[in-house]
Design a protein around this nucleic acid. Structure first.
Lengths: 219, 219, 219, 219
DNA sequence: TATGAATGAGGGTTCATTCAT
DNA sequence: TATGAATGAACCCTCATTCAT
């Protein structure tokens, strides 16, 4: 399995899944080289030749592992995802308070986005250019929104959130708000201090949902 | 004036501002052709040749009026802006109620976005690809946010909005939320009914700002 | 019409049929250059670059008129056919005697083959390599055999030829014999004197068909 | 001996004649694989890589036994010849009648050609492409014609065949006729029934040579 | 010997841009 | 100005051949 992005036609696939350690090393070098070049030059200006050069291999070696730019980009995405998932152990342990959850979630998202700003810029760009990745993006966004919508519904049922809001649309809207702000601040480099950013976004979530204390009385 | 987007280096500019009526016609045909091709093929896949062909002129004629794809895109943008401003008479006539203003503003924005979805998709794409247009986008976003921030500040001062919110960040966040939802629904074609969309976004604005009745008492 | 060999998909055909005299000249130069290179290097070793070079035009100019080697080869074929048809006024004028007809036909075929040996070699090669041209070859062979079969049938009906022969198979066989000998002698350069060649082939035709004098009695 | 087709320059030959049983096996697998790939893809489109793959060996192993495509093709030819000679015991035992001999010979040739049509197509193709094999083809054709010419001469001397025919040219012509018809019918797949084909060709031989009964008087 | 990955020369093709008419 | 053909730099991709293990 080369990635989540399947090639349309597997018939003539000349791609090799590395069998030897050496192959593994070369493939790795290519993915690292690609990431370097992509981040430096952008997706469009990245030439296969440069990727090979950055990886320190012959230009032809690229084609031992990938068929085209799209495919190696998929590999970069995959690798990055592993990187971003492993360390942070997303499984929030026992956060029950909605406000805390919102803060933790936003904080973590923005921190990670800031950390990987170059990459995130790249993803935005490619999603804009390549239909495959655009589809992937949409998919992920939907999955995420679905989860949040469920949460919102639960809060509404418990009387802790504005019942007039459409849960799914709201989930999408608030998520988009956060991700777009992250883009604006860390990719477009509109300077806003981290805490001010998190704080404001949290507050808009809380206000937006009209979050009330769990067992609380309307203030 | 060829557009708001100046070429970095004017030295080699061989472009002609049409002097004759014939020239005016040719230039116009090119801009119309460009828009057609851009909307059909996207910015990247649009070839100068195709634009000329769509305009019904010889390929070489392109260079009488533009130096490259970027420049004609600027001309398309300019033309579109004129189109979009003229008819709708944006000048809000005496809306004073904040809620009404929010509704009017969001409604008009989404309506126009929906109307021109192809074009908006194009703008998003180009902003992602070309630094000049990206800068333009940022600029416009900032101007818009500034205006909204001022509004929010006024409301806060009048005790009608949550005073804990950072006005500028909030303005950006809520604007981004709306524009991103417009993109999601009308470019990525995630089906959400217009009224549900406007309604939900309005509500999040209102809740988010904790808008209170003008003369109202804190509930 | 670019030739008898249609491109499979006309959708993206960027090929230009020359509109100006200059274009006509360039296209002509390319076809001449192609013929030169094909005859010199063979179909397989002919590089597009070399053809352009031989034509004295930039490498990219090739693609103004042709999409690939196959297409320009078709143009060469077409041009040659015109050349070979025009001058020799094939229209046999009132030959009625079968023997004379056979002699005239074989003589003319072999003469022309000898004259254009390089080209004929090329055609053989390409027919062996490219399905499109192979099909063309078959077609032509069939048409020719059909005509000859009709002739044989007539002779048989008039009692001038061996009635036990299958006319179509015989026509194919005798034609193939001649063309193959032409190939052997003029392409593979197996030295056989022209008159001896024609004479022997004529005789085999005559003997093979058991041609009898028109009104004659079996000798 | 790697084959009858010597490499022009033996200097760099690194080829190994298998010493071990394992080597013998590998070489055999390669030749079999090559035949498979050649028949499937044609000579030109057969890639060394594919041959190795078809043989179930690593791509590098190819070069242990062969230097290039041409050489392994020679090996295929050699192997096939052995196959085609062994079983059919060509040694005609005591056929003395010319007509019988012609029939036996043509019948056997066409049968074998039909049987191995794929391969024969391949040989035709390669003879058209590779000078070495072309030369081989010529050689064989000449040897065969020489033998037949001798036969014809004998018949002429005995007064059993048309004395006006050039024996060598006639031998070539009639052989070419048969082989070309075989090609037409079994490679180009022009449908002609086997018996009709043999019958007609036999008759043309007989008529062509004006074969008379051994002891017969001119009719 | 066998393996399978690495190499890199070689040709194809595109298309922005120039230029003679 | 308009035309449309000519130019050639730039990159992609293939695959025979080599080579370290």
């Amino acid at each position: 399995m080369t990635g989540q992005v399947p090639t349309e036609d597997g018939a003539h696939a000349r791609i090799t899944t590395p069998r030897s350690a050496r192959g593994e090393r070369t493939r790795g070098a290519l993915v690292r080289g690609a990431r370097e070049v992509f981040e430096r030059d952008g997706y469009l200006d990245a030439r296969i030749t440069d990727i090979s050069k950055a990886a320190g291999v012959a230009s032809g070696s690229f084609y031992t592992y990938f068929n085209n730019k799209e495919e190696i980009f998929a590999a970069v995405v995959e690798q990055v995802q592993e990187e971003m998932l492993h360390p942070h152990l997303r499984e929030r342990t026992g956060i029950t308070d909605a406000r805390e959850m919102i803060d933790a979630s936003n904080r973590e998202y923005l921190r990670s986005y800031k950390q990987n700003a170059r990459l995130m810029a790249l993803f935005e760009q490619v999603a804009q250019i390549d239909p495959t990745f655009r589809a992937l993006r949409i998919q992920r966004g939907n999955a995420f929104a679905q989860r949040n919508a469920k949460l919102i519904r639960q809060l509404q049922e418990r009387g802790e959130a504005d019942p007039s809001l459409d849960p799914l649309v709201t989930a999408h809207a608030l998520s988009n708000m956060v991700s777009r702000m992250a883009y604006m601040v860390y990719v477009l480099e509109q300077r806003i201090a981290f805490e001010r950013l998190v704080g404001t976004l949290n507050q808009i979530w809380i206000n937006g949902l009209q979050l009330r204390e769990p067992g609380g009385h309307a203030s």
